[in-house]
Design a protein around this nucleic acid. Structure first.
Length: 250
DNA sequence: CGAATTTGACCAGCGC
DNA sequence: GCGCTGGTCAAATTCG
């Protein structure tokens, strides 16, 4: 998917050229500053990506990929660790899908909560032998009969990283994506979570494939979110109204 | 007051 | 059989 921003360069030749040029210059300045911010955000993402990659290399997790938000995601198509004992509830011997997600949190954050768009109910906590930090057990409480379970524990190597292990598949769609992730669709970014920003202006620098991949993943996630699409549609229609009003006032 | 979280007890698998 | 360990239950507690 490719995102482009297009400016209507068809300026009314009948006059008011200066005003139009002024507007365009203003828009250009705004886009430039926005682009700087976006590049900064992207650079930050790449740094997170590299540090996570190093950690994963140490752990020899060959089938892990970094996704957006500085999150590392392991293969979901196979079991990462075989269930040592059959679940009491699952007596039909079907192996649940297991996926592992690494989430970087603030060092000051001591909670074991991973915002992933679903609603979880904590049903237990345990200190395991191989890790001094406690492991929290969650069940999906968004749908009454959703079988998915989640285990969250801080990484032994890096206490700033939460390791979330998901078992099973949701039989429902996630709650509001933007709400849960703190992804802001308004100009005022929320500070309750990671903020995803899309670089809509092509950078003069040659983007690496990694960066492009990250942007693609962000775009895919955002475009899947109905809330984001609605907010985008509203923003576009508002923008069009503003442009219509400005052009009619000229 | 109901829902969510905490936390100790309990259960079952595994290794010795 | 016994102890260790991970996972779950459920009563108590907290919170909105």
């Amino acid at each position: 998917m490719e995102l482009t921003s297009s400016l209507d360069l068809n300026v009314d030749p009948s006059g008011h050229m200066d005003v139009a040029v002024e507007m365009l210059m203003e828009e250009l300045h705004r886009l430039n500053s926005e682009n700087k911010k976006l590049s900064e955000a992207l650079r930050h993402l790449c740094e997170s990506y590299n540090s996570l990659k190093k950690q994963l290399k140490r752990k020899d997790s060959s089938n892990c990929n970094i996704n957006l938000f500085g999150i590392s995601e392991c293969s979901t198509s196979q079991e990462l660790e075989p269930c040592k004992r059959p679940c009491r509830e699952n007596t039909n011997f079907t192996t649940p899908k297991i996926s592992k997600v690494l989430v970087r949190t603030a060092p000051s954050d001591t909670g074991l909560y991973v915002m992933d768009g679903y609603q979880w109910r904590k049903y237990g906590q345990k200190v395991t032998r191989d890790n001094p930090s406690p492991r929290a057990y969650f069940k999906c409480s968004f749908a009454p009969n959703c079988p998915v379970k989640k285990k969250v524990q801080r990484s032994v190597d890096d206490p700033g990283v939460l390791v979330a292990t998901y078992e099973g598949e949701h039989n429902h769609s996630p709650r509001g994506f933007s709400e849960s992730l703190g992804v802001s669709t308004s100009p005022i970014a929320r500070n309750t979570g990671p903020t995803v920003t899309l670089d809509l202006v092509p950078s003069s620098d040659v983007q690496s494939s990694t960066q492009q991949l990250l942007v693609q993943q962000m775009a895919t996630c955002l475009t899947r979110d109905p809330n984001f699409r609605a907010a985008l549609a509203t923003a576009i229609s508002e923008k069009n109204l503003v442009l219509d009003n400005t052009s009619s006032n000229i």
